[in-house]
Amino acid sequence: MPSEKAFLDIISGRRPDWPAAAARGALALLEPVYAAGAALKNLSFDVGIKRPQDVGVPVVSVGNLTTGGTGKTPVVAAVVQKLLQRGMKPAIASRGYRSVDAAGNDEKRVLDLLCPGVPHIQNRDRIAAARELVAHGAEIIVLDDGFQHRRLKRDLDIVLIDATNPWGYGRQLPRGLLRESRHALKRARLILVTRTDLVSSSERERLLDEIARDSSAPVVTSRFVPHGLRDRSGLIHSSDDLKGRQVVAFCGIGNPTGFRATLERAGLLLHSHAVTAFADHHHYTRDDLEALIAEAQASDAAAAVCTLKDLVKLPPIDAPIPILALEITLEIIDGSTAWERAIAGYGIPRAP
């Protein structure tokens, strides 16, 4: 099986050789089959053949059109923190894709750190998860990666679009990364464009124009900013501690390019000017860590740095250098009023 990077090199067109071209052709033949299936599922809900299930409390969904890499986890944390500030009792429901063990997958482990004490159930049946959370006192459900999960009725659909690759190479799965057509944006109640600081002003304006063709929802632009460096004991250090120093960087996330840009913004110098990228949701082994530590020692790096999603699932190891995670927070650039109103408008208990 080809690696995730090899697959992306093929569908993005970065590989111009004839085997890659042949693979793109084969994937293009499968694309209409996938697109038809997605369209039929949506049609069944649009015309009322299937009906979303109401779990009795408001539901806020955070999702996207493409597979992975838009920054859902820090956005879910931001939504939950807003609801907590308003005195609500939120809870999180998610699928639990590629869970490490009973403690849940990397996203749940990160959200447990960022939203301590907030209940979070992972279940392929998100309706069952939401009902269990409500039974235990949740006043509002935040549905992680829920835009395509239309079985669960929601009050607010927040759709994330990554400015650096907004349309997943312009094709639906498996030829591209779109889970469904861009026209699905008509279901969104709020659109959050992430990483807008990583594209030019002309690219940003063009993207906003493209969004407007498919949606009349308010559009909020944002970026992820470095917040600090978390060590394996949970202690948070200032990113200034490593500013101007060389580090070995690695990650197993959907958008390693975005991670690299955030590291550079924090002033860290990347060994070989690169990030060692593993597959999204990669389960690390001791061999992986030993190789990274050896690389760091050989290059006289001050630390090995990864994302929080990586740090929470690293196996125990005695490392001669620090292994740190760069924490990020969501920062709204334009549209803060729409963002605040969206959370305030739907983050209230329903009348009995």
Results as ranks from 00 to 15, higher is better:
Pro2Ile: 08
Phe7Cys: 09
Asp9His: 09
Ile10Phe: 09
Ser12Ala: 09
Ala28Gly: 11
Leu30Trp: 05
Ala36Pro: 01
Ala38His: 04
Ser44Asn: 09
Asp46Arg: 13
Gly48Glu: 07
Arg51Gly: 01
Asp54Ser: 09
Val57Lys: 05
Ser61Gln: 09
Ser61Ile: 08
Thr67Lys: 11
Gly71Cys: 07
Thr73Gly: 06
Val76Lys: 02
Val80Trp: 07
Val80Asp: 00
Gln81Asp: 10
Gln81His: 12
Leu83Val: 07
Leu84Glu: 09
Gln85His: 13
Gln85Ser: 13
Arg86Tyr: 11
Gly87Ala: 04
Ala93Lys: 00
Ala102Leu: 11
Ala102Lys: 10
Asp112Tyr: 00
Ile121Pro: 01
Ile121Asn: 00
Arg124Asn: 12
Val134Pro: 11
Ala135Lys: 15
Ile140Leu: 13
Val142Trp: 07
His149Ser: 11
Asp157Met: 04
Asp157Glu: 14
Val159Glu: 05
Leu160Gly: 05
Ala163Tyr: 14
Arg171Gly: 03
Pro174Lys: 09
Leu177His: 01
Glu180Met: 02
Ala188Lys: 00
Arg189Ile: 00
Leu190Cys: 03
Leu192Gly: 03
Leu192Asn: 02
Arg195His: 13
Ser200Phe: 11
Glu203Met: 12
Glu210Trp: 02
Arg213Cys: 04
Ser215Ile: 06
Val220Pro: 03
Ser222Asn: 04
Phe224Pro: 06
Leu229Gly: 08
Ser239Pro: 07
Asp241Thr: 12
Leu242Lys: 04
Leu242Tyr: 07
Arg245Trp: 07
Phe250Ser: 00
Cys251Leu: 08
Ile253Ala: 03
Thr257Leu: 12
Gly258Thr: 04
Leu263Asp: 06
Leu263Ile: 14
His271Pro: 07
His273Tyr: 12
Val275Asp: 05
Ala279Tyr: 01
Asp280Met: 00
His282Gly: 14
His282Ile: 13
His283Gly: 06
Thr285Ile: 06
Arg286Gln: 15
Leu289Trp: 13
Glu290Gly: 00
Ile293Met: 14
Ile293Arg: 01
Ala301Ser: 10
Ala302Trp: 04
Val305His: 10
Leu308Trp: 00
Leu311Lys: 05
Val312Met: 10
Pro316Val: 10
Pro316Asn: 06
Ile317Cys: 08
Asp318Val: 14
Glu327Lys: 03
Ile328Thr: 10
Leu330Cys: 05
Gly335Asn: 09
Glu340Asn: 15
Ile343Ala: 08
Gly345Trp: 01
Gly347Cys: 10
